[in-house]
Write a protein that binds this DNA or RNA. Structure first.
Length: 877
DNA sequence: TCGCGACGGGG
DNA sequence: GTGTACGTCGCGA
């Protein structure tokens, strides 16, 4: 039988561990179990021992990959019956001074590693049909298993679902035990009984659509849901934020009604959630739980301000949620006005599914799973485990054993070591700040720098030579010796060579591939790139099994050495200047303005440096016609690149955030425009004029209120906030205005700052209310506190002074007040900052200190900060 | 500037 | 489950 491996677990039957593999082949899902495989670990210096938990002890010779070892060491391979006895035995052994290895490898991975199988691999098993009914899918007794090489994937079945619930008491948070689920919507791919979606409703209603089923109550609805999951039998269960909301909620409600909490593919293990501090993970044996929220939030290629389903759908699908204020869910439900609710629920389930299918969210993980060795379900998480499982595979082939994960004592030791030998990072050249026009800036970077270095210099924990003797070694710039690869190719270099070579091959294949195959290949090369780039981080990660600070610091040391060499080489050979470098990239200022010529030079530099350095490849990445750099890691460039032979351009920004949650749209837009004018027109004066125009519009109320609105969420009961925050003050105001439906926890409050004498926070106002009552916007606040600081940073970098921007030498910004106060530091009481200035007598508030030092009414001015008032104030510089 | 604690998504 | 854990942001020191 041939199938693709989706999931695995084990259970105990009469003190005998049984491994179960879940897969999918041509004839659908299958389970194959193996009952002749036992857990084991390795022990060093183990004396004779008689213990009924131990099945057998065998003497073996293995290499330990910490430092170079010429000869293997003698170890005992201790095989036991019950995997759960291993951590107990490990403790007992270690207490007696016996070192253990691989004593914390999950049993399912022990099986997979020993049989050379990765998650999502195609496998061939010899097996017999079994007639027990412990699974909901056909089950077989396996006799042998081997991997087969196949790149394709079986069609997976997806069920996306979303629950709606009502909070019976709007003044508290959701309570799983009290608040009922009123609807469950589902979206299927492929369709279920010819239906792409289905909505279950927890009370009898008048149905207007044929994909709606109504029930007597919540319990009956839940029963039907379980039945549908069982019948449809999805491989993947998905939905937006199901891991932290829908799944745990569902389980609690099933528990309440004493319903079978088992909608996985086995009958003897219920679905359960693991709670780790904040996050929860739900395990459904035999199926895969895939949460697009969790995936998107962690995807470095997709950067969004917010990851709400609505926002994500808008940015990635050009679609959106159906609008229902969640306070209205209860009302609509009580009023039996459920049609819109049904559409709302249906849409949510659909959107989550569309995200996965249309954006190919699963592709990368299918490949990452194969490349790393992890089961698909585990490939969504951290990088460490990816490397470790791959290392285990590799170690087995080469007769190595891998250390356990470090315990508290070991982590302590590593932390102490770190204080002594600090881990020096990458080299960053102090940039030549400002605008670089009149000549293109060429950007070049090393292709996979750290992986290439590991490969080139045989950097690996098993190659470190502590006391160099007769072996051929190389000394890294960090002063660490590594055995030459002619003596032994290290474990890391060996894996990386394979990973990089495979990636190179795939990128070549991709050029001729089309359609589905091209997508798979692209996902595969991405997965390989992710793997390759994880190794450096791994060596310096304190919890890594193969952590060695000497290895990590050798990698960065070689990196620094090579990039400095590169700078010298470029500047000696070409009439250019390197104006900035960071880790693996070089920014080269030329005097060339013609794009074709710049391109030619870029290619020449790339070819020259690559030729000189041999093991490394410096790639010509892009041309910036103009380049603006503020500080290390913060810059913008007018990028030119070719697409189908044609020159295209765009503005590239790094580290200069034009979008931030606490900035109103006006700030983002103005900032973007300022950068555009400077880069594309090279006209700083025009940029200043533009900024002045915006200031002017603000003063004269010509800026639409939407442009000034900031949105912030309420995260807890509004009475329990300690400081005074604008959106919370506004929420209190809104509650007073409309006590029937006050803002609740989780609501997002849009606000603007209006003119007035109160402190800043008290002047937050609802934009609609402002419009209706024709209130005045505090344009000074928007100028000084919102617009000015980010714009100032940009303009100062191109040599503009403050008064040039403000256009009035007499105006003093709040920063000047800070500086002015610094001298008086010794006689001062403490406020931790200044938000504004308040008259002690009439309470009028000022954004800036009045020039006279007194209020109009003659009262004394004091400082105000976060609702506190003080006569004096310390501002640390 | 750094370290710590809270929050995110969902209804 | 041969367990114990994420990233980012804002705040206070």
């Amino acid at each position: 039988m041939i199938f693709q491996l989706l999931d695995a677990d084990y259970f105990l039957k009469e003190n005998k561990p049984i491994i179960r593999l879940f897969g999918k082949g041509e004839n659908g899902p299958v389970c194959v179990y193996f009952d002749d495989f036992y857990p084991y670990f390795y022990a060093e210096n183990l004396n004779e021992i008689d213990d009924k938990r131990i099945k057998s002890i065998e003497e073996v010779e293995k290499f330990i990959p910490i430092g170079y070892q010429k000869n293997p060491v003698k170890l005992k391979k201790v095989t036991v019956y019950n995997p759960k006895d291993i951590p107990i035995l490990k403790e007992e052994f270690e207490r007696r001074g016996c070192k253990t290895y691989e004593a914390d490898v999950l049993f399912k991975y022990r099986f997979m590693v020993d049989h050379g199988i990765s998650g999502m691999d195609w496998v061939e098993v010899e097996c017999d049909k079994d007639h027990t009914n412990m699974t909901s899918i056909p089950i077989f007794h396996g006799r042998s298993i081997k991997k087969i090489n196949r790149d394709d994937h079986v069609q997976l079945k997806y069920l996306s679902f979303d629950i709606e619930c009502i909070i019976l008491d709007p003044n508290r948070q959701i309570d799983y035990s009290l608040d009922p689920i009123i609807m469950i919507s589902m979206a299927f791919s492929p369709a279920y009984k010819n239906k792409k979606t289905l909505v279950l409703v927890a009370k009898p209603i008048k149905k207007n659509k044929d994909n709606v089923l109504d029930f007597l109550g919540e319990k009956e609805m839940l029963e039907k849901f379980l039945k549908i999951v069982d019948e449809y039998d999805p491989d993947v269960i998905t939905g937006y934020n199901i891991n932290n909301f829908d799944l745990p909620y569902l389980l609690k409600r099933l528990e309440k009604y004493k319903l079978n909490q088992n909608f996985g593919r086995v009958k003897n293990k219920a679905v359960f959630t693991k709670t780790f501090g904040q996050t929860e993970d739900t395990i459904i044996v035999g199926r895969i739980v895939f949460d697009p929220y969790q995936i998107l939030k962690r995807d470095p290629m997709i950067r969004l301000q917010r990851y709400s389903l609505d926002n994500v759908a808008k940015s990635l699908l050009g679609d959106k949620k159906i609008e229902i204020d969640h306070k209205d869910i209860h009302t609509l439900w009580e009023a039996n006005d459920v049609d819109k609710l049904i559409d709302y629920a249906e849409k949510d389930a659909e959107l989550a599914l569309r995200l996965i299918l249309e954006k190919g969210l699963m592709d990368k993980f299918l490949e990452l799973s194969r490349v790393s060795g992890l089961l698909l379900q585990d490939s969504f998480g951290g990088q460490t485990i990816r490397i470790e499982v791959r290392i285990l595979h590799e170690a087995r082939k080469d007769n190595f054993v891998i250390p356990n994960k470090p315990d508290k004592k070991e982590i302590n030791r590593r932390n102490l070591e770190r204080e002594k030998k600090e881990l020096k990072g990458a080299f960053v050249l102090e940039p030549e700040k400002g605008l670089h026009a009149n000549g293109c800036t060429l950007v070049l970077d090393f292709q996979s720098l750290y992986p290439s270095l590991i490969l080139a210099y045989n950097i690996s924990p098993d190659c470190v030579v502590f006391n160099p003797g007769s072996e051929k070694v190389t000394r890294s710039p960090a002063g660490v010796y590594f055995v030459d690869k002619s003596v032994r190719e290290g474990m890391f270099p060996k894996i990386l060579r394979n990973v990089l070579e495979t990636r190179f091959k795939i990128k070549k294949e991709m050029k001729n591939a089309t359609g589905e195959m091209k997508r798979i290949l692209d996902a595969k090369q991405q997965a390989l790139k992710i793997m390759a780039n994880s190794f450096y981080g791994y060596t310096g990660y304190i919890r890594a099994r193969l952590y060695m600070i000497d290895v990590a610091s050798s990698i960065t040391a070689y990196g620094r050495e090579n990039i400095l060499k590169t700078k010298k080489m470029i500047e000696e050979k070409f009439p250019v200047k390197v104006i900035y470098m960071d880790t693996d990239s070089a920014f080269v200022k030329t005097t060339i303005t013609d794009l074709e010529e710049a391109e030619k030079l870029g290619n020449e530099i790339s070819k020259y440096v690559t030729g000189e350095l041999k093991d490394l490849k410096l790639e010509f990445e892009k041309i910036y016609k103009t380049f603006l750099i503020l500080t290390k890691k913060r810059y913008a460039g007018w990028k030119f690149y070719r697409e189908n032979g044609q020159w295209k351009d765009e503005i590239d920004t790094k580290g200069i955030e034009t979008v931030r949650r606490d900035w109103c749209p006006l700030v983002s837009e103005t900032l973007e425009n300022v950068i555009n004018i400077i880069l594309k027109e090279g006209d700083v004066k025009k940029a200043i004029a533009y900024v002045k125009g915006v200031f002017n519009d603000l003063q004269n109320n010509r800026v639409p209120i939407e442009q000034l609105t900031v949105v912030k969420g309420i995260t807890k009961n509004i009475e329990s906030y300690e400081g005074t925050l604008p959106h919370i003050e506004l929420a209190k105001k809104l509650k007073r205005r409309n006590p029937q439906s006050p803002p609740a926890v989780g609501d997002r409050i849009p606000f603007v700052i209006i003119k007035g004498n109160d402190m800043l926070s008290k002047r937050a106002e609802d934009p609609n209310y402002v419009k209706e009552h024709n209130l005045q916007i505090d344009s000074e606040y928007y100028t000084e506190c919102q617009l000015f600081p980010p714009i100032e940073r940009i303009l100062l970098a191109v040599g503009v002074t403050k008064s040039e921007i403000m256009g009035n030498g007499h105006q003093v910004s709040i920063h000047d007040i800070f500086l002015g106060n610094k001298k008086k530091k010794e006689e001062v009481t403490v406020l931790k900052g200044i938000e504004e200035f308040v008259c002690q007598k009439c309470k009028k508030s000022y954004r800036r200190m009045p020039l006279s030092g007194l209020c109009e009414c003659g009262g004394k001015i004091v400082f105000s900060y976060q609702g506190n008032i003080g006569e004096k104030c310390v501002i640390e510089k």
